[in-house]
Design a protein around this nucleic acid. Sequence first.
DNA 1: CTGTTAGCGCGTTCAA
DNA 2: TTGAACGCGCTAACAG
Lengths: 340, 340
Amino acid sequence: MATIYEVAKLAGVSPATVSRVFNGMGVSEQKTLAVREAARELRFTPNRTARSLRRQASEVIAMMIPDIENPFFTAMTRAVEDLARADGYSVMLCNTDEDPEREQEYLRAAVSDPVAGIIMVPSSKTARLDLPLERRVPVVCVHRRAPNGAVDSVVADNRAGSAAATRLLFEAGYSRIGCISGPELVETADERAAGWATAVRAATGADPAPELSVRTTYTVSGGEQATRALLALPEPPDAIFAANNKLASGAIRVLAGAGMMPPRIGIVSFGGLPLVLLVPAGIHVTHLPSRELGLRAATMLLERIQGLDVPAREEVLPVVISDEDSGLSQLDGHFGVLDA
Amino acid sequence: MATIYEVAKLAGVSPATVSRVFNGMGVSEQKTLAVREAARELRFTPNRTARSLRRQASEVIAMMIPDIENPFFTAMTRAVEDLARADGYSVMLCNTDEDPEREQEYLRAAVSDPVAGIIMVPSSKTARLDLPLERRVPVVCVHRRAPNGAVDSVVADNRAGSAAATRLLFEAGYSRIGCISGPELVETADERAAGWATAVRAATGADPAPELSVRTTYTVSGGEQATRALLALPEPPDAIFAANNKLASGAIRVLAGAGMMPPRIGIVSFGGLPLVLLVPAGIHVTHLPSRELGLRAATMLLERIQGLDVPAREEVLPVVISDEDSGLSQLDGHFGVLDA
DNA sequence: CTGTTAGCGCGTTCAA
DNA sequence: TTGAACGCGCTAACAG
């Protein structure tokens, strides 16, 4: 692996000149050409590690998400990568599995790498950001707020969105609506359950029955178990608000297995059901601004990396509720089609 | 950010001793304790950049995939990450978008970082691996073979799997089966189209009609257009073999829009349709060993990183074809359910 | 515009 | 077992 010294020797210049050529400083055309020629001959590529060490700055952004297999997070990641690349940064993927220990481990690694910045979906309200804060590594929290509002955050309006999604079911004529949401202390899960409760209160004038709200893990099997629990109630719900796509998948799966489909039971999925596009008619699907969340987070982080020094900011992106089944119900009597 | 020098001073030892403590060399218990205490006090973390530069070795694996939003690739990536983490490596995600130029750019970056190794899904048979080969950075190709067999590869048996999947349609009574596959020169696309042709030949005793095979991009809209083209044929097919999940999604979308569903038309998707789990009955879905591909690739790469020096290896993983619609058709008369 | 030199933080000789 | 000194490859500061 060639170094600037070898290039310099071959080009008949000093190492510093080689460095300057590769960093766009003022070098005479003649020497520039000579350096480029020598570099090509030696297949020279600047060593990024050495550069980082010397500059005390890296070109890597750490992206910490709970689950790389959830299309919601990959869409976010994709957006981040697009923007980061445009600014010359690479994206390092860190899968936390909602595990605070893994998260902490990744934070430690990111800080000792050290990365240019961190975009993270905090696994819980207890996430500790001391390490990056202390080392002055910029952090932006996305999708869930930063603990203590310590750093920039950009989130979707989960509460209002969930309330609107639940309202859809009331408007469709359902009256006893169950809620399946994620773990306690996970912000999105709390917010979405709260939105559901708000809508129930607005529609019925009373607090929702406690047994109608089930909290579980954000997984397909969590959705399955919760749905079974709701169906087993003495007075089961006639509709279900599922707080994310995996929960909705589990719910749909169990309901389909029990032969219960709309309009016999109402279902709304808060968050897109990806790729497959086919859901039975009558299932409402709301769109979460995953890409927009990623774009905003990346923008805010890049600003911080470039030195922006203002107090922690917080942005809330609206959740647009379509009132059509699955977004495109006109296609077919039996299926709605969800945008890819 | 504390350095070993500050830790050394505080602990009353030399920097070398601090280094030794953090690398598991022989240091007296007393000094070890002193160093650890000082390190904790200073919140010291070894700087990975400096370590990489000095050791000429990094702890990052570059994972280059065509599309982070395709669950097939994220499942692979997830498997890679699991294994890599266990060995102390982080995974850097590189999204190539099937674009050879971006791929090349990423290879250049990976080589100049420099990473410990590269796992890649080559975007085409023309991918150039000279850079990593020259710099002796280990590469493993996954899902698609390495160009020229230059490095280790692990792939699924796309040809046999596709033939078996196509046979499923013949066995279900369909006789004129169309094929929608990916771009020319993309190995999986070629192999799957070839598998389809083999099955057609075996079933009909003749070569398939050329107009029954459509090649397009591996996208939902590609699948849509191809399906429309097939339906517009003077003699349209009575069944469709879709060579990947995105193509199948597009096909299903168009067919559903035209009111054509099984059994009126046969459909098989080569590759899982993720998360949503609901596809109309009669749609066959085969399972690709995405996780296994990732695991094998990671294993092979880690071996190479550890210095294994044998000629390039090639592994072919079997594709298991389930003969049930969507894997779980027993659930419901109208829907099949696909495993998450 | 160009060359010389120092040092980013660490791991690893070599001597003691 | 320990410490002093060197250098990984590069860029920034200073001279010229």
